[in-house]
């Protein structure tokens, strides 16, 4: 993917952000999941975040989604604090989680329509939009199926449709294809890439897979533990093989450290 023109200020800004957790056993020495993390993401840019398990990617994700408050530093999305100004982001953020997180009591179409419903889109309109998204993702005829009747790949398609149906400005993805088999994952990855190109959403895509990061991202950030940037690469200039080798070297170093 070639990098789009990024805004100078950045749509997503992490400014020296740390997030620590304390436990009764470690009251004096808090555990840092994210430490002094700084980066920006420009408008229409999709940044892939790579890192090993436990490096704080998901904590960074929760900070970005407004589901957790930073211990220090500033997180800004569109110039607003996603935690403090929680309601301001209604209808602006679409999230695809690692697992599908479908409501078991809602049919596929009702799950897709959830975000639209919460954004007060009228019933007929939201169901029409949801049906259109299900059709786009190859689920025509499954609109009224409950999640338990769908395969893992189909359920993840429903969750992708749910995220895109609200036309989000910001797209956040937390390893959305990691629980799928390779064939299904590859197929969905392709569809996902087309959707991102089409909607031009600004986004962050967390992944374990270097191949996935190279396929989907405009830029790649490699995290070390606790979440800090160990390596950054812009795709489109440097040959992919070189980037892959560098990522492997850095991740090896990170592991050794």
């Amino acid at each position: 993917m070639t990098q789009p023109e990024a805004t100078k200020a950045g749509e997503i800004v992490f400014d020296d952000v740390s997030k620590s957790f304390t436990s009764p056993e470690h009251r004096d020495s808090p555990f840092y999941a994210v430490r002094n993390l700084s980066f920006t993401v420009g408008r229409g840019e999709l940044v892939a975040v790579l890192g090993k398990t436990g490096c704080g990617k998901s904590t960074m994700f929760n900070l970005l989604a407004g589901l957790a408050r930073p211990s220090s530093g500033k997180v800004l999305v569109h110039g607003h604090d996603p935690y403090a100004e929680f309601a301001w982001f209604r209808g602006k953020v679409g999230i695809v989680f690692q697992n599908d997180r479908l409501m078991p009591w809602r049919t596929a179409i009702e799950n897709v329509a959830l975000g639209l419903e919460l954004n007060k889109v009228p019933s007929a309109e939201r169901l029409a939009i949801a049906a259109e998204w299900l059709a786009r993702l190859g689920l025509r005829g499954h609109e009224h199926d409950y999640p338990h009747a769908l395969s893992g790949g189909m359920r993840q398609r429903v969750s992708i449709a749910r995220a895109f149906s609200i036309k989000p400005d910001i797209l956040l993805c937390d390893e959305p294809f990691s629980a799928l088999d390779e064939v299904t994952g590859n197929a969905l990855r392709g569809e996902f890439r087309d959707l991102v190109r089409e909607t031009r959403a600004t986004g962050i895509f967390i992944t374990h897979s270097i191949g996935e990061a190279l396929t989907l991202g405009h830029r790649i950030l490699v995290f070390q533990r606790p979440a800090r940037i160990a390596y950054e690469a812009v795709l489109g200039g440097t040959p992919e093989d070189e980037i892959r080798a560098e990522i492997l070297r850095v991740m090896g170093d990170v592991e050794a450290a």
Partner: peptide
């Protein structure tokens, strides 16, 4: 599910 629903504010 709570986190997912909250993400829609």
């Amino acid at each position: 599910l709570l986190e997912m629903t909250l993400s829609f504010r």
